[in-house]
Amino acid sequence: MRLTQGCFSFLPDLTDDQIRTQVQYCIDKGWAVNIEFTDDPHPRNTYWEMWDLPMFDISDAAAVMLELDACRKAYGDRHYIRISGFDSSHGWESVRISFLVGRPKEEPGFRVARQEVDGRNIRYTVESYATMKPEGQRYEA
């Protein structure tokens, strides 16, 4: 199963040149760029781990690409990695763009869990197969 979250998620994985172009677009717009990673990609898990601090006041995408390479070396084949662009022009941080730039070699996917509750009602939830293993061991072979 291929996880589809954020911009460009239904396209093939972006190349480094395409990522650099998108990052430069964010910088040209004056947005802060952030790199995040997680091993629990559930759609409601919006709070991913930050890789270093958000990058404000940078003028070249090369700085972001350098940090992305370091993040990939540390977590690349075991975690999802995404880049986000934050706009603070309105006085608060708003995510303007977010896209995946790294994913595990094998993506186990999700399952729908069915639970019968009071009054013959049925409740459905989405669970990631990855979370059946402890954190830090979810994508190890």
Rank of each mutant, 00 (worst) to 15 (best):
residue 10 F to K: 10
residue 22 Q to W: 13
residue 16 D to R: 13
residue 7 C to T: 11
residue 17 D to A: 09
residue 11 L to Q: 14
residue 131 T to H: 02
residue 121 N to K: 15
residue 27 I to V: 11
residue 10 F to G: 03
residue 25 Y to E: 15
residue 64 V to M: 09
residue 113 A to W: 04
residue 69 D to H: 15
residue 140 E to R: 09
residue 114 R to H: 06
residue 140 E to K: 08
residue 25 Y to P: 01
residue 15 T to K: 10
residue 112 V to N: 01
residue 87 D to N: 15
residue 42 H to N: 12
residue 53 L to W: 07
residue 10 F to T: 07
residue 45 N to G: 09
residue 24 Q to T: 04
residue 127 E to L: 15
residue 92 W to D: 11
residue 54 P to R: 01
residue 95 V to Y: 00
residue 82 R to G: 01
residue 77 D to F: 06
residue 136 G to L: 02
residue 7 C to S: 15
residue 33 V to M: 04
residue 133 K to H: 02
residue 8 F to K: 10
residue 80 Y to R: 07
residue 126 V to H: 00
residue 88 S to L: 07
residue 64 V to D: 05
residue 130 A to T: 12
residue 88 S to C: 12
residue 83 I to C: 08
residue 141 A to I: 08
residue 103 R to L: 02
residue 73 K to Y: 06
residue 46 T to N: 12
residue 116 E to I: 06
residue 84 S to V: 03
residue 57 D to H: 11
residue 17 D to L: 04
residue 38 T to V: 06
residue 46 T to K: 10
residue 19 I to S: 04
residue 13 D to T: 10
residue 52 D to H: 15
residue 49 E to C: 07
residue 84 S to P: 00
residue 20 R to F: 01
residue 90 H to N: 13
residue 138 R to C: 07
residue 77 D to W: 08
residue 6 G to R: 10
residue 70 A to F: 07
residue 90 H to I: 00
residue 140 E to V: 05
residue 114 R to F: 02
residue 17 D to C: 04
residue 12 P to Y: 06
residue 19 I to H: 09
residue 15 T to R: 00
residue 21 T to Q: 13
residue 70 A to T: 02
residue 60 D to W: 05
residue 84 S to M: 12
residue 23 V to D: 08
residue 44 R to F: 11
residue 57 D to W: 03
residue 30 G to F: 09
residue 93 E to Y: 00
residue 96 R to Y: 06
residue 123 R to H: 06
residue 120 R to C: 08
residue 52 D to V: 11
residue 66 L to C: 10
residue 84 S to G: 02
residue 27 I to M: 02
residue 2 R to Y: 05
residue 55 M to K: 12
residue 129 Y to I: 00
residue 22 Q to Y: 12
residue 95 V to R: 14
residue 105 K to Q: 10
residue 134 P to Q: 07
residue 54 P to I: 05
residue 6 G to I: 06
residue 85 G to I: 01
residue 10 F to Y: 08
residue 134 P to A: 04
residue 20 R to A: 07
residue 69 D to R: 15
residue 116 E to K: 13
residue 105 K to N: 14
residue 17 D to E: 13
residue 123 R to I: 03
residue 22 Q to M: 12
residue 139 Y to P: 01
residue 52 D to T: 13
residue 4 T to A: 14
residue 125 T to C: 05
residue 89 S to M: 01
residue 16 D to G: 03
residue 73 K to L: 06
residue 106 E to R: 02
residue 32 A to F: 03
residue 33 V to F: 05
residue 112 V to L: 12
residue 70 A to D: 03
residue 121 N to M: 11
residue 94 S to H: 11
residue 23 V to C: 11
residue 120 R to S: 09
residue 12 P to N: 13
residue 119 G to D: 07
residue 99 F to K: 06
residue 36 E to C: 09
residue 130 A to D: 13
residue 89 S to R: 14
residue 120 R to Q: 14
residue 55 M to C: 11
residue 31 W to N: 11
residue 129 Y to W: 08
residue 35 I to A: 08
residue 97 I to C: 10
residue 79 H to S: 14
residue 119 G to K: 09
residue 15 T to E: 06
residue 14 L to P: 02
residue 44 R to D: 08
residue 47 Y to K: 14
residue 47 Y to M: 13
residue 87 D to Q: 05
residue 63 A to Q: 11
residue 47 Y to S: 12
residue 107 E to P: 11
residue 116 E to G: 00
residue 17 D to G: 08
residue 16 D to P: 02
residue 99 F to L: 02
residue 10 F to S: 12
residue 5 Q to S: 03
residue 78 R to A: 06
residue 16 D to F: 04
residue 135 E to S: 09
residue 132 M to Y: 09
residue 14 L to H: 04
